[in-house]
Design a protein around this nucleic acid. Structure first.
Length: 276
DNA sequence: GGGCATGTTAGCAC
DNA sequence: TGTGCTAACATGCC
């Protein structure tokens, strides 16, 4: 579940779902598709994680952060990071649950449970590190943690086009193609506007719109609209994303689709004028 | 079969 | 340095 609200939904499931991960002991790990283990080597990955206990499940941007402690000496510090990329799924299941064709990593837990990472497109990545900063250290502030003041300050250091800027995880972490389009529509800003062209009011609108669409996404358990994910309902609230040619809910104009830095981009030409 | 897909990165040019 | 373009990664759906 690729963007911030979908990743947050996974984190909550792993913390508070029917089969919580927190508190479980990881007995062993099996790597079925080695390329998805970014570091260390798959063999070292499996050896180091065996016997550890899950202390916490968190999220930063689109990354899941799973805090571990060593079962033998109680030492904290090891972190398992997971990025779902385009099609990754992470869930705790009974060991007897049938495997899907896309299982890439399996962690055997206590009580005959297993944590499974499934990923049709094989873009997902996992890391086992002493310090999460090794992986997420270059990211910008989390899109839901950043303050208005910080957002405006960062915006003032940039000149580029809004759409790719929102997708730049080193600028702000967590926004993807869907929520970028939805936030720009809510803020009434054309995706090709540039950061240095925004008035104070427009910057404030953008900040508020980002928060609103992300929080609404989380409240709906994220979005799910192709064969990959079940569960979320936010796709029912899309105003522009994937609605090319359909009516803008605000003004009834037809939604347009353009391509911006290789990503499909949806907007309402009436609500989001480029000039004026 | 071509086009498309919720993401990221490397290499390159200006 | 910032910005942006292209290709690549791998698979599946329509």
């Amino acid at each position: 579940m690729p963007e911030l609200p979908e990743v947050e939904t996974v984190a909550r499931m792993l913390r508070e779902g029917a089969l919580p991960l927190v508190g479980r002991t990881i007995r062993s790990a099996e790597v079925l598709w080695p390329r998805e283990v970014a570091s260390p080597t798959p063999r070292t990955f499996a050896r180091r994680i065996a016997g550890s206990r899950v202390q916490s499940v968190g999220r930063y941007g689109k990354y899941l952060l799973i805090g571990l402690s060593s079962a033998s000496d109680g030492a904290d510090g090891l972190s398992l990071l997971v990025h779902l990329r385009m099609s990754g799924r992470l869930e705790v299941v009974s060991c007897s649950a049938a495997f899907t064709p896309h299982a890439r990593l399996v962690w055997l837990l206590d009580d005959d449970l297993a944590l499974r990472f499934e990923d049709a497109r094989k873009f997902g990545r996992v890391w086992l590190v002493d310090d999460p900063a090794e992986v997420i250290g270059k990211l910008g502030p989390d899109a839901l943690a950043i303050t208005l003041e910080e957002f405006v300050l960062r915006l003032r250091t940039r000149r580029g086009t809004l759409k790719p800027l929102l997708l730049d995880q080193t600028f702000i972490a967590g926004i993807g193609n869907i929520y970028a389009d939805e936030a720009l529509h809510l803020a009434r800003l054309h995706p090709l506007r540039t950061a240095d062209s925004l008035s104070e009011d427009e910057a404030l609108r953008l900040y508020a719109a980002i928060r609103q669409v992300l929080l609404e996404g989380i409240a709906a358990n994220g979005a799910s609209f192709d064969w990959v994910y079940p569960g979320g309902r936010f796709q029912e609230n899309f105003k522009v994303y994937g609605r090319t040619g359909q009516r803008c809910p605000t003004c009834d104009s037809p939604i347009r689709r353009i391509t911006v830095t290789q990503r499909s981009t949806h907007f309402c030409p009436a609500c989001q004028p480029l000039a004026g």
